[in-house]
Design a binder for these strands. Structure first.
Length: 256
DNA sequence: CGCATTTCCTGGAGGC
DNA sequence: TGCCTCCAGGAAATGC
């Protein structure tokens, strides 16, 4: 049961309600689920605390008496339990939203809106996938856009495109049925494997216990500029696509 | 509609 | 050692 709430940096909180003693004291955490890139913490009374880690955000459970790490923006303490749930985010691209009811239908707004949550690549069929990506857009820009498809970020996008042998600038609608199917399976494999290994800790990511992920050791292109492609030994190159650093093997991922 | 650019923010890296 | 500049990126806003 939540006992006290300290919003150290109010600017990271958005939505209809502000996390504070008055709004959260006495509520219990009933369920924690992932939705796209968000962590949704369901509380008693039908409220939900939505957390987006952005790039450098962390949700950590620590001893209540441990001095807070730099850039700790939210601290939640529990009655009779010597632990705190803390949200830390040095670059503040993440955020928290406290909503009364369904986060997807929240009304009455303070600050940023909750990023969209649409179809999850791990929960759609190949037929649904084909429909969603049949658009005249760069495949990388489409995968990073959370509106048609949610949960794919820069690392897993690059990794999936390499495994499928697809250039990030390819027009999604121009992908052959075989290439589209290949990408569907490659993306699902990358996400499944990354989740199993606890994510990619390139710089900041840590899980709730403070441990880093291990998927970065399986990266085939991301962060490997100049190093040999694990399939054909050609040096990995870096370009910018959709405003993001993009890593490809120029031989395995040809345009056209 | 698509797409490039800018903005938010800080730590780490590189240059001098 | 210290100061400066640049860069990383999730997602929204802006302009074409």
């Amino acid at each position: 049961m939540i006992d006290s709430v300290y919003l150290v940096q109010p600017r990271i909180a958005h939505g209809p309600h502000v996390p504070c003693d008055d709004s959260l004291r006495g509520r219990r955490i009933e369920r924690i689920a992932r939705a796209g890139k968000q962590v949704r913490i369901s509380l008693s009374g039908g409220w939900t605390l939505v957390v987006h880690l952005g790039m450098t955000g962390r949700l950590i459970v620590t001893a209540a008496d441990e001095s807070p790490a730099k850039h700790t923006h939210l601290r939640i303490a529990f009655r009779g339990e010597p632990v705190e749930l803390r949200f830390c985010d040095p670059r503040r691209f993440g955020g928290v939203w406290l909503v009364d009811g369904n986060p997807d239908e929240a009304k009455g707004w303070i600050g940023r809106r909750i990023p969209p949550v649409a179809a999850d690549p791990l929960r759609i069929s190949l037929a649904q996938w084909r429909k969603l990506i049949a658009r005249p857009r760069q495949i990388k820009a489409l995968l990073l856009d959370q509106n048609p498809l949610s949960g794919v970020g820069n690392i897993y996008c690059d990794e999936a495109l390499h495994r499928a042998g697809i250039h990030p600038l390819t027009r999604a609608a121009d992908l052959s049925p075989a290439a589209s199917r290949k990408l569907y399976h490659a993306l699902r494999r990358v996400l499944t494997e990354a989740i199993a290994l606890g994510g990619s800790s390139v710089s900041d990511y840590r899980n709730a216990q403070g441990a880093p992920g291990q998927f970065q050791t399986r990266h085939r292109v991301y962060g490997r500029e100049g190093q040999p492609c694990r399939r054909c030994r050609t040096p990995i190159i870096r370009l910018v696509v959709a405003g993001r650093g993009t890593h490809i093997c120029p031989k395995c991922q040809r345009l056209r």
